[in-house]
Amino acid sequence: MILVVASAVDKVAAGFVEELSLLTPAAVMTCKNIALECCDIHCPNLLASSLTIDSQKVWLSEVRGVLCLLPTVIPDELYFYPDDEREYQSMEFLALLTYVFANLPCPVINRPTACSLSGPFASQTAWYHLAQQLHISVAARNWLSDEISPETEKRSKQETIESTILNGQSIFNHDSKADKLARSLAISADIQYLHASFLSGNPYRLNQVKTTPNLREPQVRSALIEALVQGGAS
């Protein structure tokens, strides 16, 4: 069984699972499944745990791969709880999902850390710091807590070059220079999936990193399906 952890309103994730299900058993798992269907999560014996998804019991020991599309759990995701409980419950669900998916022995894209359900960092600034460590130039950015500077908006209109890395390999192979930089970021961050954009010029300057896969992109979908079916994540 492959689990795709997604928002209850994510129709694209549901479509992806339909496509994936043609090759291997797969299901979308949402916070609603955990909240309203039977769940038993054990600690320390995580593999003795089970979830129920659309009335089907899933043993975590039988999960062969996970694609996590939620970087965090926002209170609105828990729309089935009363308003005044959602914020507290969102912290509880985040805590639970972090424990489960950080520790499952199967491939998880991206494996959660204490900081994010989608890899090691929860903010762009962290990627900029990593880039600086790796001697990758960073696009000019000025963030003031009072405002966003006009200079930032102007520069963001420059031409961007994009690269998407899955398990150390470029998915598109559009630009070898961008691929090399993005691969270097992914490997250093020990992250399975990463989409980086760079501002053109010499050198390329890191503009933005996204760690949640864009499933609307056919090549991304195909690469993820291949990785999940073959157990190519780590």
């Binding site: 320390p44 014996n45 950080a102 520790n103």
Partner: peptide, 25 residues
């Protein structure tokens, strides 16, 4: 931020940890 997540590291340090269950059943 996650007690169970942290408990994995606690065990790796050689401590005993109480057995836990998260359930709605």
């Amino acid at each position: 931020h996650s007690k169970l997540f942290q408990s994995v590291t606690i065990r790796e340090c050689g401590f005993s940890v109480p057995e836990s269950l998260v359930s709605n059943d």
